[in-house]
Write a protein that binds this DNA or RNA. Structure first.
Lengths: 212, 212
DNA sequence: TGCGAAACTATACCAAAGTGTGGGTTCGAC
DNA sequence: GTCGAACCCACACTTTGGTATAGTTTCGCA
């Protein structure tokens, strides 16, 4: 089921291509292709097999046939999204049509390759997908770090932070919250420390990652 | 060439659908369709005719056949982008293929409709395109306004603004620029006034629209 | 029941930011 | 040559922001 062949160098943070196709010969050909460019690939015969045998935590992308045994490739794409998995997806197809292509691309697919395609087309698409994955992970990491910091804030500190990033002065914040200015300063100081912000400009940017 | 029929209400800021198709009967059918939902449409027989007869300044979207006399619809899409026109594009096609679809969607097309399609499909796509256009224009307007304000800044004021949104203190800015702290305050005050920013938080957000 | 976290307040003090006034130089345009 | 724009500096002052110390109250939970 899983006929992955690993390239010389591999670890939990080198990117990997998860190949999903029900045709064993195609799986093998693709894995060999990636092996030829020192890229690790793991092949699965169905979407379910992929979900069962991989946690999809490693960086990389998914390369799958739209026509799969069991679930449709497009549905699988949406399913992944629901699971919170943002791994880039590249579709392959032997019998695709335009509406299917449009739906996949609207849902954020990196590419949609109609068979037969050149090896280089796939390698190009994978390169784009890898880059997209790196970007997403970087964004996600930054966002996650800020979210973690924000969790340490108390309710009041949250309120004060929101007011600060709106550009309100301490006295205005104090009036709005019905507390004294000195207490606002206290909360404000706590916010800056907990959020690891060295300036208001810094705090504004971090707050924006939280959705203002 | 231009067989537009205007709905009852029309003005330079009601959205319009620019229809481009070389088949007169299709043009007419589409214009009638939009007329039936109180939406203005202007029809053209070619991309060139559209460019010659419209400045494309009104809000709306472009609905065009990928196969056009003269230029390819996809090339036209790129051409528009080069001209700085960001109007949403919807493709129609009778003989489209998957690579064509992928290319169009990657280039930002709102939709790619294979003939025959239902009237509702087109109306839905146009609704999405109109919304996208509104969003883009709003973004563009905000951006343009800030850019105009930034143009009134002198070189020094620009430098000071950049330093301020980095979260530097006046004394640090003064040291970096090799001037006195009091002069920094002067420039800083000018920046806040010229940029119409009421707080540092405000300034940070405006500066971000300028690309940090 | 007692303990800790959260929230609030005050006094006091210092640092940073902002404003106004007044004055200086350089440089290019009219 | 003079006029204005951009740039610079200083003194004096006010406001705002930030910190530290010390204490009170409320509330949930062990």
């Amino acid at each position: 089921m899983n006929d992955a062949r690993r390239p010389a160098k591999t670890s939990s943070d080198t990117p990997v291509v998860y190949v999903v196709d029900d045709d064993p010969s195609i799986r093998e050909a693709l894995v060999d292709l990636f092996l030829s460019v020192q890229t690790e690939a793991q092949a699965f015969e169905s979407a379910q097999a992929l979900l069962d045998n991989s946690d999809l935590k490693r960086p990389g992308c998914i390369l799958l046939d739209v026509r799969l045994p069991g679930a449709n490739g497009l549905d699988f794409q949406l399913h992944l999204e629901k699971l919170g998995n943002q791994m880039p997806v590249i579709f392959m197809t032997g019998h695709g049509d335009i509406p299917m292509t449009v739906r996949a691309m609207k849902a954020g697919a990196v590419d949609f390759l109609a068979k037969p395609f050149r090896d280089q087309d796939i390698l190009d698409a994978v390169a784009v997908a890898f880059q997209k994955d790196r970007d997403l992970r970087q964004q996600s990491a930054a966002n996650g770090a800020v979210t973690e910091l924000a969790k340490t804030l108390t309710r009041r500190e949250h309120e004060v932070m929101a007011a600060v990033v709106q550009g309100l002065m301490n006295k205005q914040i104090a009036f709005n919250l019905g507390i004294s200015e000195i207490t606002v300063k206290l909360h404000r100081g706590n916010v800056m420390r907990k959020m690891e912000a060295r300036s208001v400009a810094d705090l504004v940017r971090k707050a924006e990652l939280l959705g203002l």
